[in-house]
Simulated assay, not measured.
Amino acid sequence: MIQVRKANERGRGFFGWLDSRHSFSFGNYYDPEHMGFSALRVINDDWVAPGAGFDTHGHRDMEILTYVLKGQINHKDSQGNIKALPAGEFQLMSAGSGIFHSEFNASKEEELRFLQIWIQPSAKGGTPGYQQQNIVQTAALTPVVTPDGRSGTMSIKQDATVYQLSLAIGDELNWPLTAERHYYLHLISGELQLGDVTLLPGDGAKISHEQQLIASASAPVSGLLFDLP
């Protein structure tokens, strides 16, 4: 079964300095039909004005994945990490028993754009952690996050894998799925034919009880595929 969530159906949070699109309920946006999917709780597409950002705030019991699409994030947290996160890099922050952090647009002139993704951990508590990687795309689907950190990926406290999707125009994808698991595909750019549905930037697809993911790119595609319990 494939259920498509169109980009223009997402919630929106606009605060002047921040323009965000919410694939699932978040902040002031609430939709009981879109509270998350399996362990995936949040996908926010955030645009941050030059020099602006998120002041110090706290999280706990959440795996928070950030993927920078444009610009650079300046990150600082209560574990002593002071990092720069440029476009193309991933950050995974395990909030564990509690962590405080701030995220700012490093540029005074250009907008920052990034995806903020929350995945619920398999167990609460534990020591907070920080990981950052520039993952080299080696296939149509390249793992970025895995439960065991295999092959240089970042390790997550959940039975979940996050893949970076990249297809050139005309490329086809035929990927085996496990029918008992859940999958979510988020398209960042391009145009993807998924069965009889066309996905455009910002669209998402919930995939359950399927044995194959068959798709083709009618324009160069980038996206993320989540393999979830």
Score class of each variant (00 low, 15 high):
residue 129 G to I: 07
residue 202 G to C: 09
residue 140 A to W: 11
residue 67 Y to I: 12
residue 11 G to N: 03
residue 199 L to F: 01
residue 171 D to C: 11
residue 85 L to S: 06
residue 89 E to R: 01
residue 20 S to N: 06
residue 13 G to C: 08
residue 48 V to Q: 02
residue 21 R to E: 14
residue 33 E to C: 14
residue 22 H to D: 07
residue 123 A to T: 14
residue 81 N to E: 08
residue 175 W to G: 11
residue 101 H to N: 02
residue 74 N to S: 13
residue 83 K to C: 14
residue 90 F to E: 12
residue 209 H to G: 11
residue 145 V to P: 03
residue 175 W to K: 10
residue 60 R to Y: 01
residue 112 L to R: 04
residue 24 F to G: 06
residue 227 D to S: 12
residue 15 F to A: 05
residue 210 E to A: 08
residue 8 N to M: 09
residue 41 R to M: 10
residue 64 I to E: 09
residue 183 Y to H: 12
residue 103 E to I: 03
residue 27 G to I: 01
residue 177 L to Q: 06
residue 188 I to L: 09
residue 24 F to C: 07
residue 21 R to L: 12
residue 72 Q to A: 13
residue 103 E to F: 05
residue 168 A to I: 10
residue 90 F to G: 03
residue 59 H to D: 05
residue 226 F to E: 06
residue 138 T to I: 08
residue 135 I to P: 04
residue 114 F to Q: 04
residue 14 F to T: 06
residue 121 P to Y: 04
residue 225 L to G: 02
residue 16 G to S: 10
residue 101 H to S: 02
residue 106 A to N: 05
residue 11 G to L: 01
residue 102 S to C: 09
residue 5 R to Q: 13
residue 26 F to S: 01
residue 119 I to D: 03
residue 151 S to F: 15
residue 103 E to H: 01
residue 87 A to C: 06
residue 46 D to N: 05
residue 217 A to M: 05
residue 129 G to P: 09
residue 76 K to I: 08
residue 113 R to K: 08
residue 213 L to M: 03
residue 72 Q to M: 15
residue 164 Q to W: 10
residue 32 P to L: 12
residue 195 G to S: 07
residue 4 V to H: 04
residue 68 V to W: 04
residue 224 L to S: 00
residue 24 F to H: 05
residue 82 I to W: 13
residue 65 L to T: 05
residue 165 L to W: 06
residue 97 S to V: 12
residue 142 T to C: 00
residue 148 D to W: 14
residue 45 D to G: 01
residue 168 A to V: 11
residue 99 I to A: 02
residue 84 A to T: 13
residue 177 L to F: 04
residue 95 A to C: 03
residue 68 V to K: 00
residue 175 W to Y: 13
residue 158 Q to H: 09
residue 78 S to W: 03
residue 44 N to Q: 07
residue 55 D to Y: 05
residue 45 D to T: 01
residue 86 P to D: 09
residue 125 G to E: 00
residue 68 V to L: 07
residue 27 G to F: 07
residue 25 S to Q: 14
residue 50 P to S: 08
residue 202 G to N: 10
residue 144 V to Q: 01
residue 213 L to P: 00
residue 117 I to H: 02
residue 197 V to G: 14
residue 216 S to V: 08
residue 145 V to G: 06
residue 221 V to G: 04
residue 78 S to G: 06
residue 80 G to N: 09
residue 46 D to R: 01
residue 136 V to F: 14
residue 26 F to I: 01
residue 159 D to N: 12
residue 198 T to V: 09
residue 26 F to Y: 06
residue 210 E to M: 05
residue 84 A to P: 00
residue 40 L to Q: 06
residue 71 G to H: 04
residue 100 F to I: 01
residue 151 S to C: 15
residue 189 S to L: 15
residue 148 D to E: 14
residue 100 F to P: 00
residue 19 D to W: 11
residue 82 I to Y: 14
residue 184 Y to K: 06
residue 28 N to C: 11
residue 25 S to R: 08
residue 80 G to T: 08
residue 93 M to W: 01
residue 213 L to K: 00
residue 19 D to Y: 10
residue 106 A to S: 08
residue 140 A to D: 12
residue 92 L to H: 06
residue 62 M to K: 00
residue 144 V to C: 02
residue 75 H to R: 00
residue 23 S to G: 11
residue 171 D to A: 11
residue 56 T to F: 03
residue 187 L to Q: 04
residue 184 Y to A: 11
residue 191 E to L: 05
residue 67 Y to H: 10
residue 211 Q to C: 11
residue 120 Q to Y: 15
residue 81 N to K: 05
residue 73 I to G: 00
